[in-house]
Nucleic acid binder design. Structure first.
Lengths: 283, 283
DNA sequence: CACGAATGTGAGCGAGCGTTCGTTTTTTAA
DNA sequence: TTAAAAAACGAACGCTCGCTCACATTCGTG
């Protein structure tokens, strides 16, 4: 596994998330991951994604100079996501795309041979991002189901936050995928669900969770994660931050499965987290 | 934390001296509603909906004889829902629709003047169905938040079960609605959410629920309801009945909001539920 | 049966689609 | 400076789309 270089927009990297867990005190070990630390760990900027895209499609993309190709790709992809999420991929014409992205029709076809290829290129980056992040959970979590579940929810929310338009695109256009792509999407979706189910099963086995129907519960958690990017504008309007959403979902789920683990691991608890004093404890 | 006032559409004053606290036979009163009893109460068969559709569009539909018009409409709508849910409304051509429904191009235009009108007609029936069912909760529920919440979840699931393709259609094509329609959809969505928030607020006030963030919790319940029709095929494959889903969601939510009300109202508990002769699965 | 009214039909219209390719412009390098 | 290579361009092509309308067919009634 290679370490990703971090060309962060702002100045220096805000110090990665204390890489060595064996380090200091236990409280430090489970230091809460933030959206910022996620962004420091992975680079899902448009530029980074388009660079990976170029590498993956060197054979199809006819432009030679990498920095030109990446620059054009960025315009194309950015515009595609915007237009497609507004009116649907099929309703978006390549002429619209050309005009909005400032390229000519011919130039577009330097980057893909078919409109459908463009769709698949985008989908490919989405599923690659999913397996890159959710695919390799930190080993130290394997024996703490509650932490593992929390890590899953958190990672999912943070990932879909950085790549929100991408995920909306994949979600909305899924049914129009040309078979191959649709299966890929379904598989990826089910794999997320089974990761959740795994963590739940583990928790039940250790007597930490109390769940009637494992499969059903995992099914119910999935839409909560999807809602974050599908209805992103609603949450933005209400001023909900990614961290707040993670906490709300964790709490909601944690209570529902009657999670009896270390309260500070799953329940809201963390007082330093609070941005609003909010006594909130109704008695 | 701010208190959200809930501008309800048209609702009786919830405050009051709980008049019919104890009705006739308690068992009868809170007799569990089933999918079957819902179907008996409302007629959302294709025929019934198309009949209403015809009445609502007498001016646009040129066919005179009602029974012919309804029959044709049924074919048109049925086919539209099938095709649109498979490849998207915009990707479905009217030629496809004509062929599949067994009508000619010209005949189609006897029922709508524009492809967009067809879309709006379908959307209209969906939102009409929502307000017809969710809009008028039984009065005897106004003073039992847990029952009211349960009634909302139940009604929503049953409604979207009978009209599943309609709701998928509305959900998936929502972003392509021509403004007017999109606003209608958004409003309807928010109204459902505020009905939920209403019940939650009521429960918190009476000390029955324990909820940190009302608005957020209501937001989290909504996707659970949507998952039922959006991912219907998944649940069908797993053999989950509408009743089972209602129970799973109720239980999940009930625990999450630490509902302390009468257990039989919200918690699963009742194992004899399972012994019931299981609702008949319609085609 | 007859005959006007109501329905049904599908080829044809212009518009817009994805895609191509001969041409022009820009870049590169000697 | 210059010429070959790379990249950008956008009119043109064939096709399908939503939609129309002159005509054919069926229905309802005397």
């Amino acid at each position: 596994m290679k370490r990703t270089k971090i060309p962060q927009t702002a100045d220096g990297p805000p110090v990665g998330p204390a890489p060595c867990d064996k380090g200091a005190t236990p409280e430090r070990r489970s230091q809460r991951r933030t959206f910022k630390s996620f962004q420091a760990e992975f680079d899902f900027s448009l530029k980074a994604i388009c660079t990976r895209m170029l590498e993956r499609h060197r054979d199809t993309i006819r432009t030679q100079k990498p920095h030109v190709a990446v620059a054009r790709l960025m315009r194309i992809i950015q515009t595609t996501l915007t237009l497609a999420n507004r009116k649907g991929f099929h309703s978006m014409s390549l002429r619209d795309l050309a005009t909005e992205s400032g390229l000519s029709m011919g130039a577009l076809y330097t980057y893909f041979d078919t409109k459908e290829t463009l769709l698949m290129m985008i989908l490919g980056e989405v599923s690659s991002a999913v397996s890159q992040t959710l695919g390799s959970p930190p080993v130290h979590l394997t024996d703490d189901p509650a932490e593992r579940l929390h890590w899953l929810l958190e990672t999912h929310v943070y990932l879909t936050e950085v790549m929100q338009p991408w995920f909306v695109f994949a979600y909305m256009e899924a049914k129009a995928f040309p078979k191959e792509g649709r299966e890929k999407a379904t598989k990826s979706e089910l794999s997320t669900e089974s990761m959740i189910a795994d963590a739940l099963a583990d928790g039940v086995e250790r007597g930490l969770f109390s769940i009637d129907d494992l499969e059903m519960t995992a099914s119910l958690i999935k839409p909560l994660l999807q809602d974050w990017y599908v209805k992103r504008s609603k949450y933005r309007r209400r001023g909900v931050s990614p961290e707040q959403y993670v906490q709300a979902v964790t709490e909601f789920v944690g209570t529902a499965i009657r999670c009896r683990s270390d309260p500070k691991a799953v329940k809201s608890g963390r007082s330093n987290q609070r941005s609003e004093p909010a006594a909130a404890e109704s008695s």
